[in-house]
């Protein structure tokens, strides 16, 4: 059975550090995830997530800092609001909110990152694979 494919947008100050710590500990993790480090979770555009889903990536995770712990003066608050709206949008389009994992302040330790990724894989494996949409990048780029 094919492993689901996950793209992670990790805030450089929390999620990325957690992922790095998991790496240092040599935790065994499924290989089908890729991390794109970002300055702050608020830099993750909704279109980037939609592009990724359209390109056939099964799940997107956005990992940020905990509420009140943002290095950019609570920029992650707006990110949460916006991305939760996107989850609603994904529900109405039938893609489902479970394909977008939002986790703030829960991935800055190695074991937390490990747990989040493994659980997300377990969730996604139950869902049907997302087929790449024809001409997904034609409109914008």
């Amino acid at each position: 059975m094919n492993q689901p494919r996950i793209l992670i947008f990790a805030c450089k100050w929390c999620g990325f550090i957690g992922a790095d710590a998991a790496g240092k500990k040599r935790t065994s993790l499924p290989s089908q995830f890729r991390i794109i480090p970002v300055e702050c979770a608020s830099l993750v555009e909704t279109d980037a997530i939609l592009r990724a889903l359209a390109g056939g990536i099964d799940g997107i995770a956005v990992l940020g800092c905990h509420i009140g712990g943002c290095r950019y003066n609570n920029a992650n608050h707006t990110a949460i609001k916006r991305l939760e709206l996107l989850q609603d949008l994904l529900d109405t389009t039938g893609i489902g909110r479970s394909r977008l994992l939002l986790s703030f302040g829960t991935a800055h330790e190695d074991y937390q990152f490990e747990e989040i990724i493994k659980n997300f894989f377990d969730e996604l494996i139950l869902l049907p694979p997302l087929d790449p949409w024809l001409s997904p990048f034609g409109v914008i780029s």
């Binding site: 300055e39 702050c40 608020s42 993750v44 909704t46 950019y72 003066n73 920029a75 707006t78 990110a79």
Partner: peptide, 10 residues
């Protein structure tokens, strides 16, 4: 500006 990217995504 601290390059958090809040403006980019809105």
């Amino acid at each position: 500006c601290k390059a958090c990217g809040s403006c980019v995504s809105v």
